[in-house]
Amino acid sequence: MQRRSFIALAAALATLAGATAPAHADALETIMETGTIRIAVPQDFPPFGSVGTDLQPVGYDIDMAMLIGERLGVDVEIVPVTSANRIPYLQTDMVDLVISSLGKNAEREAVIDFTDAYAPFFNGVFGPDSIDVGSVEDLDGQIVGVTRGSVEDLTLTDMIGDGVTMRRYEDNNGTISAFLSGQVELIATGNVVAAAILERDPDIRPEIKFLVQDSPCYIGLNQGEDALKAAINEIIAEAKTDGSLEAISMEWLGQELPEDL
């Protein structure tokens, strides 16, 4: 209760500070007024966002959204999105935040704003034992499947030479299906995704070949919403120290949060 009122106070103060910014409706102010925050979440990216047996979204990102709503003291309106439409949702003001395992790069930062990191994400290249690949140089002449626009897509695309063919699938399901059906032998994906595949005990087992990047996920919001950004960063920082983020990580990723997140 105390914490909640503190956040509300911080939010109010931040709102005041934000009032001097160029005049347009402040997102945080609107959220506090309506008592509802609208958050875009994935539902095709386990364990960050998937669905339960009732088709309601569940996962790391959804728990994070709920945590933010709880700490702000407002209701959360969960808006399921795809990787193709998550940013337009934000830009057209249909949601206040995008919590969808977003990676950050300069080109994206020109369009939207990001909070601090809220989730760890390691991605690597995975493939069956029969393929001898140990580094990015070994990829020459190989075909690698990846989910278009994901963190690993952006990172790996920058690292590879001309000899590597990238196959970019619409969503994670496409990437996983392509791997399991043998359409691609190597995939670049998150360790958690590979673990999810292994859990199903498939014929073709995705073993780690090499680590591409340790690149955490960020929450996306519209530019100029400094008050909202400050409030969210506050919540993230608090969740990291009080163990609530740790609990989410243990539940969905089955591992502790890394020290440097």
Partner: peptide
């Protein structure tokens, strides 16, 4: 594509959850 959950979308979502 615009997030309307009908038959195909439900199919995609279920595939992701069930493999």
């Amino acid at each position: 594509i615009i997030g309307f959950i009908e038959l195909t979308r439900a199919g995609t979502t279920l595939t992701n959850a069930t493999f």
